[in-house]
């Protein structure tokens, strides 16, 4: 029993220490807002985490938009309300699925890559050598990746939403024969700029901060062994996904409230 309590205490202390290290790293790196001379580093990272994630975002968005439109059309047409497909699709995407699915895909594609890259740099002593040259790796390596994630993910979310709505339109209008005018006008009448688009983007920025924070910290704090890198990469994807889903519920409650 004593052993159990002791191991529980040890684990809790480890977790707290880890959270402390992560917070210090995050604050130090964020404080190091890239200077003008370091802009190329930031642009390169935006390319790595943002542009290279575009293919998976676009393909997934089109497919998800198409599936949602199909399901909505099937159900709504039973009540003769197939004109509301566009509105339903837009609300679901802008408020929930856009930020959440983009966050999950981003964690799997870019988050894991960032963790593996930083972890490998640590394992091959590149971070140590940089530090020994008097160059702060938090500023040179971590900060550009952190900022690149925070800048890229909301843009990817916007891209996801647009492509998914077009994917839905292809299915609902072109294939199933719903009215094109009703599809767009329903959306224009009911979608609000701040309440739907804005709040979705706020979610996306929060997910971006959380995912990139987890990704860079797991890489920076990894055990410098091949197993350590594998474990850190897995942890990035699992922790990011759980955090996105949990945070989404909390954010939806606080943003849209009054559900009862």
């Amino acid at each position: 029993m004593i052993d159990f309590v002791r191991s529980l205490g040890d684990r809790s202390l480890d977790r707290m220490a880890s959270l402390g290290r992560a917070t210090i790293m995050w604050a130090t790196a964020l404080w190091g807002l890239p200077k003008l001379s370091e802009l190329p580093l930031l642009v390169r990272q935006i390319y790595n985490v943002g542009v290279l994630s575009l293919v998976i975002i676009i393909l997934s968005a089109f497919s998800i938009g198409a599936v949602i439109a199909l399901q909505f059309y099937t159900q709504l047409s039973r009540f003769g309300a197939e004109d509301a497909v566009g509105l339903g699709l837009a609300l679901v995407l802008l408020r929930e699925l856009g930020p959440v699915v983009t966050g999950l895909l981003f964690a799997g594609r870019a988050g894991s890559a960032v963790t593996a890259e930083i972890g490998l740099m640590k394992t091959t002593e590149q971070l140590s050598s940089m530090e020994m040259m008097g160059v702060d790796p938090l500023r040179r390596i971590v900060a550009p990746r952190l900022w690149a994630g925070i800048i890229s993910m909301p843009l990817l979310t916007a891209m996801f939403n647009v492509v998914a709505i077009y994917g839905g339109m292809v299915v609902a209008v072109e294939w199933l024969g719903s009215d094109l005018g009703s599809f767009w006008s329903g959306m224009q009448d009911s979608v609000e700029l701040w309440n739907d688009v804005g709040k979705g983007m706020v979610k996306s920025v929060i997910f971006a901060i959380v995912v990139t924070w987890i990704a860079v910290f797991q890489g920076y704090d990894t055990e410098p062994t091949p197993e350590g890198i594998g474990l850190a990469t897995t942890r990035t994807v699992v922790m990011s996904s759980v955090m996105i889903l949990a945070l989404d519920f909390i954010l939806t409650l606080s943003m849209y409230g009054e559900f009862k």
Binding site: E125, Q126, M132, G134, D136
Partner: peptide, 17 residues
Amino acid sequence: LELRKDIGMLFQSSALF
């Protein structure tokens, strides 16, 4: 970081970028 500008270190793994 300032002090280390006066130190050169060769790592076992070479640690090239």
